[in-house]
């Protein structure tokens, strides 16, 4: 996200600041530790996650743009740190962590950001956001208030096939899943696939551009930050 999807991050910060919030981005945080965690290397994951926890300890609320990283901090940190001296802190941090759209809708009570995006779009639910964090209605509530935007739902709710290191360990399965996703998105006739999860978008975009498909991808935050 930091390196590859900066526009999503910038949009998030600009939106939050427009709403009058002070945003702090701890410069030292690079990664939540999900790649080693998902691969089974929990010690290594803790090496990365412990400083993250410490840096986040004093924040009032933690807003995370990617559903997947959000799930890591909110759902899996408590598992990862179970039985260690950070167990309590992990629970506290988890309790005040919000996924971006959830934060806007359910914490701030905002659904209309005055955005304008006159395009046909479809929304991809990142699996971690959807199933670990229950993010489904929130982005749709936000998109409903974007001027000119038409949302067409896909008939199939399925994973895009990214799955972190899975996409490199089992590339053909991952690609097939991505193709199924792209087909379902194309069937809606949308110009853009919108998602709150930048890693899914990276995977979907990677397939679309390789196959020369016209459908584009864009992050939810960017759509909401249009004027």
């Amino acid at each position: 996200m930091d390196a590859l999807y900066l526009r999503a991050g910038i949009s998030m910060v600009e939106i939050l600041e427009r709403l009058g919030h002070k945003v702090i981005c701890p410069n030292e945080i690079a990664c939540c530790g999900q790649p080693p965690f998902n691969s089974g290397y929990w010690d290594e994951a803790r090496t990365i996650a412990t400083p993250v926890l410490e840096k986040l300890a004093n924040a009032e609320a933690i807003v995370i743009g990617s559903g997947s990283c959000g799930a890591m901090v909110k759902k899996f940190y408590p598992d990862l740190f179970k039985g260690t001296r950070y167990a309590e802190l992990a629970k506290q941090v988890a309790a005040k962590t919000w996924e971006f759209s959830d934060f806007l809708v359910n914490k701030l009570g905002v659904t209309d950001l005055g955005a304008k995006f006159p395009h046909k779009v479809t929304f991809h639910d990142g699996c971690h956001g959807l199933r670990e964090l229950g993010i489904h209605k929130q982005p749709r509530a936000l998109l409903a208030n974007v001027q000119g935007l038409q949302l067409f739902e896909m008939t199939e709710v399925s994973c895009c096939g990214f799955g972190g290191t899975f996409s490199a360990k089992f590339p053909m399965i991952s690609t097939a899943m991505g193709e199924v996703k792209c087909t379902a998105a194309a069937e809606t006739g949308a110009e853009y696939i919108v998602s709150s999860d930048s890693s899914c978008l990276m995977h979907i975009q990677g397939l679309l551009s390789r196959q020369g498909k016209p459908t584009k991808t864009i992050s939810l935050a960017e759509v909401l930050n249009t004027q």
């Binding site: 691969s39 699996c127 971690h128 199933r131 096939g161 990214f162 799955g163 972190g164 899975f166 360990k169």
Partner: peptide, 12 residues
């Protein structure tokens, strides 16, 4: 167990 994107559709 590695061949999974951990999407969680199964658990649901």
């Amino acid at each position: 167990s590695n061949a999974s994107s951990l999407c969680g559709a199964c658990t649901e």
